[in-house]
Nucleic acid binder design. Structure first.
Lengths: 108, 108
DNA sequence: CCGTATCCTTCACGATACTG
DNA sequence: CAGTATCGTGAAGGATACGG
């Protein structure tokens, strides 16, 4: 009995993963944050073409709540905020990379 | 330049993958079909607790269109329909398994 | 048995304006 | 600079009944 039986289980880990990274801008945000190592709010918004403040900030909150990114606020004037990937996010990256490679086959 | 730059790219493969498997019942359907090897419509619906006909059938159509499952109709009376994973789906499975294992850490 | 047709609801996503 | 507040919309998801 492996994870392939997850549909029969009470709580499916795969479904849980999709909740974490399934939101519309989630994977783009994770890619951008990981790629940058550390990135500020407006810089991030610039990389994600077309995302609005409401959507970006709520996605960031969720990702932080779910332990994928870390928010650090520097008490300067004006305030500076940086987002970083957590260790948990870094363990996720190779999987996303595999998924990306898999999907790339389709797009050729 | 790896896939980590995907937010800057015109078309992000990772985003494409999420479109394929990001729908609400998508991964459960894939798990159930792969686990069964071959499964009929009503049996599948039975495994997915709470899914309605409208939702299940539209998800199945999308998965078939996207080359992840295969639909086979047997011209019997009453009609019998079986769903099978494609080869493309089987190459995806290890990735989903990795993702599932990753998510399981969170749930402990 | 395997779905479609129809109608309904919800909420994720988004545009815009404004604030500590 | 880094967000909130507010309001709006459409598409995804869903319940129910019916059809080939």
């Amino acid at each position: 009995m492996g994870h392939y039986d997850c549909p029969c289980m009470e709580k499916c880990p795969l479904q849980h993963a999709m909740l974490l990274i399934g939101g519309k801008w989630k994977v783009q945000i994770l890619c951008a944050v990981c790629n940058a190592g550390s990135i500020r709010y407006n810089a991030l918004r610039g990389k994600l073409d077309g995302v609005s403040n409401t959507v970006l900030s709520s996605a960031l909150k969720e990702l932080e709540r779910d332990g994928l990114i870390q928010r650090q606020e520097f008490l300067e004037v004006p305030v500076r905020v940086e987002y970083r990937p957590t260790e948990r996010c870094r363990t996720l990256l190779p999987i996303l990379e595999a998924l990306s490679d898999w999907a790339e086959e389709d797009m050729k």
